Amino acid sequence: MAYSKEAIDEVLAYLDEGHSARDAERRFGVSHESAARWRRKRDGKPIQPS
């Protein structure tokens, strides 16, 4: 599912307030993986391979 820039920005603002990606999942109905990925992409922090 594609999310609007406004929806993504709202989730990112929520995360910036100190809430977790799991909290965003419960509040906005987006997967916690998506919320975390949007934050990593915005902050320029790619996933570190194990």
Results as ranks from 00 to 15, higher is better:
4 S>G: 10
34 S>E: 08
48 Q>T: 12
25 E>H: 10
43 D>T: 14
36 A>C: 04
18 G>H: 04
10 E>S: 12
18 G>F: 03
12 L>D: 05
49 P>I: 04
44 G>Y: 00
6 E>W: 02
21 A>L: 02
5 K>H: 12
39 R>N: 04
5 K>Y: 02
8 I>V: 15
11 V>W: 05
42 R>K: 15
4 S>V: 05
45 K>P: 00
24 A>Q: 07
50 S>K: 11
27 R>M: 09
6 E>N: 10
32 H>S: 12
34 S>W: 09
19 H>W: 07
18 G>C: 08
31 S>K: 04
19 H>N: 14
24 A>H: 06
14 Y>D: 09
12 L>I: 10
47 I>V: 14
11 V>E: 06
35 A>W: 06
48 Q>E: 12
29 G>Y: 03
49 P>H: 09
31 S>V: 03
24 A>F: 05
7 A>K: 13
23 D>P: 02
36 A>H: 03
38 W>P: 09
6 E>I: 10
4 S>L: 09
8 I>F: 00
31 S>G: 10
44 G>H: 06
14 Y>T: 02
28 F>S: 05
35 A>E: 08
16 D>N: 15
13 A>K: 12
41 K>T: 13
25 E>A: 13
4 S>D: 11
9 D>Q: 14
41 K>W: 00
37 R>E: 03
23 D>W: 01
32 H>D: 12
41 K>S: 13
38 W>T: 02
8 I>G: 02
15 L>V: 04
35 A>R: 10
5 K>A: 15
50 S>E: 09
31 S>L: 03
5 K>D: 15
16 D>C: 05
44 G>Q: 06
40 R>S: 03
45 K>Y: 00
26 R>S: 12
24 A>R: 07
40 R>F: 00
32 H>K: 12
33 E>H: 08
39 R>A: 12
50 S>I: 09
49 P>Q: 06
6 E>L: 10
47 I>F: 03
44 G>F: 00
5 K>E: 15
37 R>Q: 11
9 D>R: 13
21 A>T: 08
32 H>R: 13
35 A>M: 09
24 A>P: 04
46 P>T: 11
46 P>W: 03
14 Y>M: 08
39 R>S: 09
14 Y>P: 05
